[in-house]
Design a binder for these strands. Sequence first.
DNA 1: TTGACATATAGCGTATTTGCTATTTAACTA
DNA 2: TAGTTAAATAGCAAATACGCTATATGTCAA
Lengths: 106, 106
Amino acid sequence: MTIREDQVKALANETRIEVLRLLDDPSAHFSMQESADPVAVGVCVLLLAEHFSVSQPTMSRHIELLKRAGFIIAKRQQKWTYCSRNEAALTDYAAWLKSSLNIKSI
Amino acid sequence: MTIREDQVKALANETRIEVLRLLDDPSAHFSMQESADPVAVGVCVLLLAEHFSVSQPTMSRHIELLKRAGFIIAKRQQKWTYCSRNEAALTDYAAWLKSSLNIKSI
DNA sequence: TTGACATATAGCGTATTTGCTATTTAACTA
DNA sequence: TAGTTAAATAGCAAATACGCTATATGTCAA
C-alpha cells in the first residue's frame, strides 16, 4: 500500500469524509469538550464516535485509517487521543489528484 | 448511492485512476487503434483490458463504474465502445472535494 | 491497589469489491 | 446463414471493508 492508495481508500467512505469536514471547524460541534480546547488541541475519539452514533472501536478504526493516510494527526494526552486535521497532507493530496489526473482547473 | 459516493468509490482503485490518467493522452499508448482515432473518439475496452492485463469483463466493469461516476463517456460505435474522459465531471469532482473538505489551495 | 474511563486491539459476521470463466448480445463479414 | 469479433452480463470465489462485542492497555484518582 502506497501512501496514495491509503489516501484514496481513506476518502472512499462517507463517515471519514465527514470526520475531516467536522474537524475543519471543531467549535461548531465539539465545544462541549472540557478536557482540552477542541480547536487548539483536537477532538477526542469518543466524542467523534458519539456524533456518528458508532461504537468507540469503529471510530477508532476510522481514525487509524485517516491517520495512516496522513489526513489527521492524533496526539495522545492523558487518557485522550485528540484528533485534528493535517492541512498540509490534505492540500498535498488534492494537488496530487489534480496533477495526476491532469484536471484542468479548480 | 449519491453521485459523490459513486465518484469517491470510483477513485478508490489504482486501475481506475490509471485508466483516467491514460485517457488524458490516448495517443501515448493507444495509437495502434485502427478502428477509430483514439484522441478524437476514445479508446476501446479491449485495448484498455490488454494494457492492464486484465480480462475483458473485468475492464468492462471498471469502465461501468467510471461511467456511473460520470468520469468517462463511453460511446458505442459499430462493435466497439470507445471511452474518453469527461473533463467537466473530473473538474467538478475536484472542486467539490476541495470545497467540501475545505482544502486551502492547490 | 482498586476502580473508572478513554482508547486500542482481537475476533467475528455480513456486505462489498474485485478478479475470473462461461455465456449472451450486438455488429459485422464471408 | 454461419462464423467472428467486441462488449456486456451472470455467476462464482477470494479478498477487503466495516460494523459489532469482548477484552487488553494506558492513565488517572480515590
